[in-house]
């Protein structure tokens, strides 16, 4: 069984509030860059599937040379092989461009049965690469996955958490599976793993290696573009502190104020 985990290098969540609009636009982000926190669950699930069903896990990312660090993080957790997809022509790709690059790399790497992704990146927040990848690969799509029940007979059965409840669904392989936070508890990189990652030689595949044309990816091919990146407007509210002689009187006053706001 071949498993591929697609990851992204993103800012550390704790530092997201410090990122300016200018940094987001230029891509020159000063915050600490880490393996996208949602992708930790995908890496973990890849390793768990390797244990359960046998096979190999490959981790892959689209990004500049420094994105190798995100791949090394996955190696330090136990993934054996990694590929960096880096070419100046990839810059400015939208979700469909990124999906096309990943799909070409997955095809080149050999047939994959299950392709895992995190729910979304903490920077782009679109969650569109998984569906894009499924369509470009002709694979089935499973999102919001909270449990992989079984893989057998060319099919995968999972549980998904939807608004109205929990769905159990079986789809044919290959499948792109976008996992949710409830699926597992990601392990930490091990000491031995970190040593292995430091020494790992990670292949870099470029546009030509993937058989893609420059016009199919990057800024020129992007169908959706971010404009006017800005901080959200600050709340302009002035807090009214409610304090009466007793807790009950305070509660009564607050209840009156909220009834008057017509929000109840």
């Amino acid at each position: 069984m071949n498993f591929v985990v697609c990851v992204k290098q993103t800012p550390d969540t704790a530092e997201l509030p410090k990122i300016s609009a200018a940094e987001a636009v230029s891509g020159d982000i000063k915050a600490t860059l880490v393996l996208n926190p949602w992708d930790e669950f995908a890496v973990e699930e890849g390793l768990l599937l390797e244990d359960r069903f046998g096979g190999d896990v490959t981790v892959v990312t689209v990004g500049p040379e420094k994105a190798t660090e995100a791949l090394k993080d996955a190696i330090a957790r136990g993934v054996k092989s990694a590929i960096l997809l880096d070419d100046p022509a990839f810059a400015g790709s939208d979700a469909w461009g990124t999906a096309a690059i990943l799909a070409a790399a997955i095809k080149k790497n050999g047939p994959a049965d299950v392709i895992l992704t995190g729910k979304m990146s903490v920077d782009g927040n679109s969650g569109l690469v998984a569906p894009g990848l499924a369509r470009k690969l002709g694979a089935t799509l499973l999102t919001q996955v909270t449990k992989i029940v079984d893989i057998s007979g060319g099919k995968i059965t999972v549980e998904r958490m939807l608004e109205e409840g929990r769905e159990t669904i079986t789809v044919s392989l290959p499948a792109v599976v976008s996992v949710s936070k409830e699926i597992n508890e990601p392990r930490y990189p091990s000491f031995m793993g970190i040593r292995k990652a430091a020494k790992a030689a990670i292949p870099v595949w470029k546009l030509g290696d993937l058989g893609l044309s420059a016009g199919a990816v990057g800024t020129g091919a992007a169908k959706a573009n971010w404009t006017d990146v800005r901080k959200p407007p600050a709340r302009s509210s002035q807090v009214v502190m409610v304090k009466e002689a007793t807790v009950d009187a305070t509660a009564a006053k607050l209840a009156d104020l909220l009834m008057a706001e017509k929000v109840i």
Binding site: L16, I19, A24, W226, V229
Partner: peptide, 12 residues
């Protein structure tokens, strides 16, 4: 975007 820390206007 950026987990609610920034907004963008997407054009097509």
């Amino acid at each position: 975007v950026f987990s609610g820390n920034l907004l963008t206007t997407v054009r097509f």
